[in-house]
């Protein structure tokens, strides 16, 4: 069960602050900027980034939550229908620059689904991607604009992100894939 810890709570905090600076820098300000977290652990991460931007810039930028369940391309492969966790985008994203936020970037399929889902809500000016961990093994031509930590992994490993808001503590660990279990928590 215990894996190798690759980020501590302190590492996550620093990475979040750095990414929040990068987002504002790349966008050259906060006007028309919005964050959308991908359910489930992308959502608290997006909120943390927004809080950090508020601390740095004194501006509140809109934060949304996106559930990509209906857009997954592996619905025919998973054992049971995933539980839908809910989309909550309370702002108009037409013309905005949307930064998608997720915990782990792996095959890129989640992000592909998230872009499809997002576009059903409107036409953003641009979509960018911020992730806490990029573990490689892309299966689609997708890359992140902002990365907390690049971690070389093998496909037999699982990157497990825990966040205080969801799991009670902040950490990123790598463990060997325990059979076919451990689905759901760590995003692909």
């Amino acid at each position: 069960m215990t894996g190798r810890r690759i980020m501590t709570a302190e590492d996550i905090r620093r990475a979040t602050i750095r990414i929040s600076h990068e987002i504002v820098e790349k966008h050259a300000g906060t006007g028309g900027l919005a964050l959308v977290g991908i359910q489930r652990r992308g959502v608290p991460l997006a909120r943390r980034l927004a809080a950090s931007i508020r601390d740095n810039e004194g501006v509140d930028i809109p934060v949304g939550a996106l559930d990509i369940t209906f857009y997954r391309d592996d619905l025919s492969l998973v054992a049971q229908q995933p539980i839908v966790k809910g989309t909550d985008i309370a702002f108009d994203l037409n013309g905005k620059t949307i930064v998608l936020v997720d915990d782990v970037l792996y095959t890129g399929r989640t992000i592909r689904a998230a872009m499809d889902a997002l576009i059903d809500y409107g036409r953003p000016q641009a979509i960018r991607l911020a992730v806490l961990v990029d573990r490689g093994h892309r299966e689609l031509p997708i890359r992140a604009d902002h990365v907390g930590k690049n971690v070389p992994t093998s496909r037999e490993e699982v990157v497990k992100v825990t966040l205080e808001e969801v799991d009670g503590d902040d950490a990123v660990e790598i463990e060997r894939r325990p059979g076919l279990a451990a689905v759901g928590g760590t995003a692909a």
Partner: peptide
């Protein structure tokens, strides 16, 4: 989903 401008998902 039904409240969206395009009430359709590819599930």
């Amino acid at each position: 989903v039904l409240e969206r401008p395009i009430p359709k998902v590819p599930a």
